[in-house]
Amino acid sequence: MKEETPILEVKQLHTHFFTKAGVVKAVDGVHFDIKPGETLGIVGESGSGKSITAMSIMRLIPSPPGKIVDGQVLFKGENLLNKSEKQMRKIRGKEISMIFQDPMTSLNPVFTIEKQMVETILVHENLNKQQARNRAVELLELVGIPEARGRLKNYPHEFSGGMRQRVMIAMALACNPEVLIADEPTTALDVTIQAQILELLAKLQKELGMAIIMITHDLGVVSEVCDRVMVMYAGKPVEYTDKKSLFKQPKHPYTLGLMNSIPKISAKKEKLEAIEGLPPDLRALPGGCSFAPRCSQATEICLTTDPVLIEHGNNHHVRCLLYEEETEKVVSE
C-alpha cells in the first residue's frame, strides 16, 4: 500500500537562534522521514520545537537571529538546505505546502478569497486567469464549501473559523503538493468542527496521496489520524515510533507523563498524574537529559549524561538512559 522510499527525510536537523540573551537551541537533532500517503505526527508542548522544525523544512526561519546550523532536509533525495531562495519559492506552496493554526491571521484580511487563491495558482501553474478561477472553485468544492463560486468574492472575515480553515486547506492544495505540513490545524476550532476538518484531511489524503506532517499538542488528534509519531521535548525528539506501539508501550517517561496527565473519559481517575515542574529555558538547558529535572525516574547519571536516540525494540526509538544499557543499535549521536 505504501511505497518504501521516503518522500521527505530530515536528518540531524539543528536550528538555533542567536539572541542577545544567548543561543536558543530550538531544534536540536531532529531526525525523521515520511513516505508518500503517510501521516507523521509531531507532538510536544509549546517551545518544544515542533513549529520550528516545520519552518526549517520550508526554509522560513527568520535569519538573523535564526540559523539552520546543521543537518539535511532531503526532499525526493535533494537537500533543500542547499537550494537558493528562488528555487525554494518554486517548491513552497507547490510541492510542499503548509497550513497554520490560526486561519484568521494567515489569510490576508483586505483581499477576497478569490484574489488570494488565484494568485497562488498563477504563481505556480501555467494557467490564465479564467482557468485559475475555475481551479479555485474546484478546490473550494473539494474542501466542502457550499456555493463555492459565489463565495469566491467574500473576504476572510465573512467565513466562520471552520470555513476559513477549509479555505486555507484549499489554498494549500492548490498545486497538488506531495507533502502537506499542518501546524496545529484544528487547535483553534471547536470539537465538532475539528472532527469535520480531520475527516476532510483524511479524505483528501486518500484521494490525492500526499504525505502529511501533523504538528499538534493533542495526543487525541495523534491517535485519530497519524501513522507514526515523533514526540519532542526541549528541541529534541525523545520518542519516535509507529502510533500503535507509542500508545501501547510508551517508553520515554515524558511520553508516559503526557499520557497520564490528560483526563480520559473512558477511565476517570481521582487525581491526574501531572508532570511536576516547568519546561526548561532553552537558553540555559540543564546538563544531561533536558527532561531529568522533571522526570520521576531520573537518577544521578541523568543529570550529567545526555542520552542519545536509540532503537529499542522494533523501530521504536527512544532517547532515555533507562533503555541505553539494552541498546541494540545507536542511530544518532
Binding site: A195, L198, E199, L219, I265, S266
Partner: peptide
Amino acid sequence: LLSAIPEADPELSRERIL
C-alpha cells in the same frame, strides 16, 4: 459532541456522529 472528542487511545473504536 461526545463522539467528536479525539481520545488518546487508538484501540478505542467509536462510532462518530459527524
